[in-house]
Design a protein around this nucleic acid. Structure first.
Lengths: 175, 175
DNA sequence: CGGTCGATGTTGTCGCTACAACCGTAGCGA
DNA sequence: TCGCTACGGTTGTAGCGACAACATCGACCG
């Protein structure tokens, strides 16, 4: 990692640099903007929302902790903390899995489901306003492919690939 | 924000949803991956690196705090904390601006400059590995345009637009 | 059986960010 | 000259995520 590498590292072309600078800005600003809307209007984090939303999409309104962690691109410790807080707020409950298993199941409560139902429209509007409505249909498709390629690098083994295309499940509360 | 809005909110089409789900995953995973590489190899966060890098690109290796905040898409309180920590590590110093001004100038130290020089190649390699090398040249250009459109929504007034295309300055340490 | 290993979660601690409150100074009008 | 306001910046606090240490339970192997 010495400065000698300066000579041997392929630098960024102007086009690459220009694209990267803009993407980096989006990476810094967009999560905060999404979080701000959800916190202001619904008192939850974007991550909280993902957890509740995923639970709402299952038939039983419940899921194993480790599956939830994988589907949210998260880690078990982080999820455990988040679920603990959501449980204190009465939006879900934890229960040991029935049968011979040491796993924990997170169940969405009625209040939690209602919260998702109340929160989803505003969130969708925000996603539209900040992202999708800014793009042409062709750009939306290009964004799909680009994101897919990058995910391939971020997650070479496809460990969390199941997260993608979960939207063919029953309930219409996907985003 | 009642559930009645469910009826009146334009929902996401399958293509939109699929693109958004993937982008959301990138938003969650990519910043962490970038941070991890820089923390592991260089002991700085991605944000720290942006600050040091921007300073290294100026002729005087110095900049006003408020300009630095704008160029990093950040806030003054956040920057103040970060600069305080970097100052304690000897990578930069703060000094009141000369003349009649209440502003503060952050100066990169020699150690700070050297740190950027040592760190840049590894960071560029990571950006290539995770993003640019995963894309075709056409996709890089498309990413440029897409990010630009989204930034237009995130920052309607162009308050931080100057951040874009700063790379025509002197030093070659932009990313 | 006994012991080790791996998988599943939880907890504790530390560092960073958001937010709000605060301070000092310049500019400006009465 | 006296405020008043706006700007530039710092500090304090609370909350969240990363990471590591710690349980616990099942499985496998001798």
């Amino acid at each position: 990692m010495g400065q000698n590498d300066v000579m041997t590292t392929p630098w960024l072309t102007p086009r690459e640099l220009s694209a990267w600078v803009r993407l980096a800005s989006v990476l810094e600003l967009l999560p905060g903007a999404l979080d701000a809307q959800l916190r202001r209007d619904a008192g939850v984090t974007h991550f909280d929302y993902r957890v509740l939303s995923l639970l709402s999409e299952t038939a039983a309104h419940a899921m194993r902790m480790s599956d939830l962690a994988r589907l949210t691109n998260s880690t078990l410790p982080r999820l455990s903390h988040v679920v603990h807080r959501l449980e204190e707020r009465g939006l879900l409950r934890r229960a040991p899995a029935p049968g011979r298993s040491r796993s924990t199941i997170a169940h969405l409560t009625d209040a939690g489901l209602q919260h998702v139902i109340d929160t989803a429209p505003g969130h969708v509007r925000e996603v539209r306003a900040l992202v999708l409505d800014a793009l042409t249909p062709e750009q939306v498709d290009a964004l799909h492919d680009i994101s897919e390629q990058i995910l391939g690098r971020l997650d070479p083994h496809g460990a969390l690939r199941p997260i993608v295309d979960q939207h063919d499940s029953g309930e219409p509360l996907s985003p």
